[in-house]
Design a binder for these strands. Sequence first.
DNA 1: CGCATTTGACCAGCGC
DNA 2: GCGCTGGTCAAATGCG
Length: 235
Amino acid sequence: MSQIINNNLFEEQNQIPTQMGFIPFPTNLITFPSLGCNNQSLKALSSIASSLTSESADSTSNLTQTLLSSANLQKPSREYLTPSFGGTQFLSLHRSSVNPWAILGGVSDCLNDSSKRSGVDHDHKLGVSSMKMKKMKGRKKVREPRFCFKTLSTDLDVLDDGYKWRKYGQKVVKNTQHPRSYYRCTQENCRVKKRVERLAEDPRMVITTYEGRHAHTPSNDDLHDSQTQSHHFLW
DNA sequence: CGCATTTGACCAGCGC
DNA sequence: GCGCTGGTCAAATGCG
């Protein structure tokens, strides 16, 4: 655990997160090369990232600042990446800089049209039936903004980010021995999804991908505590 | 018994 | 057109 994980490793694995949505999506790599943090700060950061808006983080540098300032963190120094932190470490973050699918069709247009044509409102699209899926055939797919976390964890797969998630699927991805899990926010009217998978090359690495933005505050009571506590971290 | 998870089936998109 | 792959659905199953 004391090994410093550098940028090169993530670059090598870059095809993992960029495969989302069938097409590579441009990402700004936000890396904290020697950042180590404990579970509480990780929780706070993941929560912040999953609820970020494009308005609050329009660029890589802004996002970095937003993350760090929101968690009341300053860029840590190498010395804090020590085995004593153990458990989970926040390593790096990917953010999609553009939404290629949205560019193709227009997010709101597609959503509105598909809802009107299928006769369902947005709230019911998550439970779309096969017939409805057929009706949606030919519509351009839309992807919400995505954030990818890469963490090091030997025990936990799912980060506790303060939101409640319901697992709706699991899939074995080609050339990997570990299944990819699909989660959906349980909050009504919230269409945020996340996926969790382990790197085939290094099962200790967990890739957590958030898609979309929460339209509500975290429902987990623990989050407030962790965020409060994050203000007292000694970096 | 109710809710969450599992898992096989189905579908869309992509490459050849 | 066809096969492959990832994403999602929904019935079955598990669990508290």
